[in-house]
C-alpha cells in the first residue's frame, strides 16, 4: 500500500541536506508552510538556497529561518516589504545573496523545471537591469530574454487537504506557488490541514496530482496562515 503520509514534521523534513535548494510556497504568509519551516529550523540544515516570492514577513516562518542564519541565498521577486526587517538587516550586512527575479519569470522558470524544458524565452524584463548580460532573441517582432529553469532539491508547500497518494487541494489565495513548486522539486513535502481518505477528494477538483508529491504531513487546526 502506498502511503506518502508521515507522522511528524520532523520526519517530513528528514534528509534536507546542507547546501540544498529549497522552494517554499506562499505569497507573504498566505500559503506559507510555517510549521514545516519551523521543523526545518529544528532540523538544522544550513547554507540553503531558498526560492520564495518574498524574503520573509515579520519574525516567523521564512523570516525565522533567515534569522537562524541558515540561508546563503534567496531567489525571490519582492524581498522588501514593511515587515521584512530580518532580510533587510542581513542584506545590508552583506550576509545573504539575493537573486531578484520578476514574479512571472520566477513562476515560468519554476514551471519550466517542472515541465522538463531546457530554457524559456520570456518578454518580461527585456531591456531592464534584470536582463543585463542575458541572451535575447527577437521572435515575430517581439523581444525576449532567455531564462533558465529553477529546480529544487526540496519543496515545502501548504495545502488544504491531501490524501495518502499525495493528491492535494488548496484553499483560496493560499494556492499561489504551491502547485508549480510541487512540479519542480525532487522531493515535495506538503503540509495539509487534513489528511482525508483516498477517494474523498473529487478527482475533477484535485489541483496537484500525487505524482508531484513525495511526503504529506498533517498539521491539524485551522488550515489558514498563521498570523504573527
Amino acid at each position: 500500500m502506498i502511503d506518502k503520509t508521515v507522522s511528524s514534521l520532523e520526519e517530513a523534513v528528514a534528509g534536507i541536506f546542507d547546501g540544498a535548494t529549497v522552494m517554499i510556497g506562499g505569497f507573504g504568509i498566505a500559503g506559507q508552510p510555517a510549521e514545516l519551516i519551523d521543523a526545518l529550523i529544528a532540523h538544522g540544515a544550513r547554507d540553503l538556497t531558498i526560492v520564495n516570492n518574498n524574503a520573509g514577513n515579520g519574525e516567523i516562518g521564512l523570516a525565522a529561518l533567515l534569522r537562524a542564519r541558515r540561508v546563503k541565498k534567496i531567489i525571490c521577486s519582492f524581498p522588501r516589504q514593511a515587515d521584512s526587517q530580518v532580510f533587510d538587516a542581513l542584506y545590508h550586512a552583506g550576509e545573504i545573496e539575493l537573486e531578484l527575479v520578476p514574479q512571472g519569470n520566477l513562476a515560468a522558470r519554476i514551471q519550466a523545471a517542472g515541465a522538463g524544458l531546457g530554457a524559456i524565452y520570456t518578454p518580461t524584463g527585456y531591456g531592464t537591469l534584470l536582463a543585463e548580460g542575458k541572451e535575447t532573441r527577437e521572435i515575430d517582432g517581439r523581444h525576449y530574454v532567455l531564462e533558465y529553469p529553477i529546480r529544487a532539491d526540496f519543496a515545502l508547500i501548504k495545502a488544504f487537504r491531501g490524501d495518502r497518494w499525495g493528491n492535494l487541494v488548496y484553499r483560496k489565495a493560499a494556492r499561489n506557488f504551491g502547485p508549480i513548486m510541487a512540479t519542480a522539486a525532487t522531493v515535495t513535502i506538503a503540509q495539509v490541514g487534513e489528511v482525508v481518505p483516498l477517494g474523498a477528494l473529487d478527482p475533477e477538483s484535485i489541483v496537484t496530482p500525487g505524482i508531484f508529491v513525495q511526503r504529506v504531513v498533517a498539521v491539524p487546526g485551522l488550515a489558514q496562515a498563521r498570523v504573527a
Partner: peptide, 16 residues
C-alpha cells in the same frame, strides 16, 4: 545604491 530592489509582478504587468 542602498535601496533593496524589489520588482514583484511589475515587469510582467508592464508588458503583458
Amino acid at each position: 545604491a542602498d535601496a533593496i530592489p524589489a520588482v514583484g509582478g511589475a515587469m510582467d504587468l508592464a508588458i503583458g
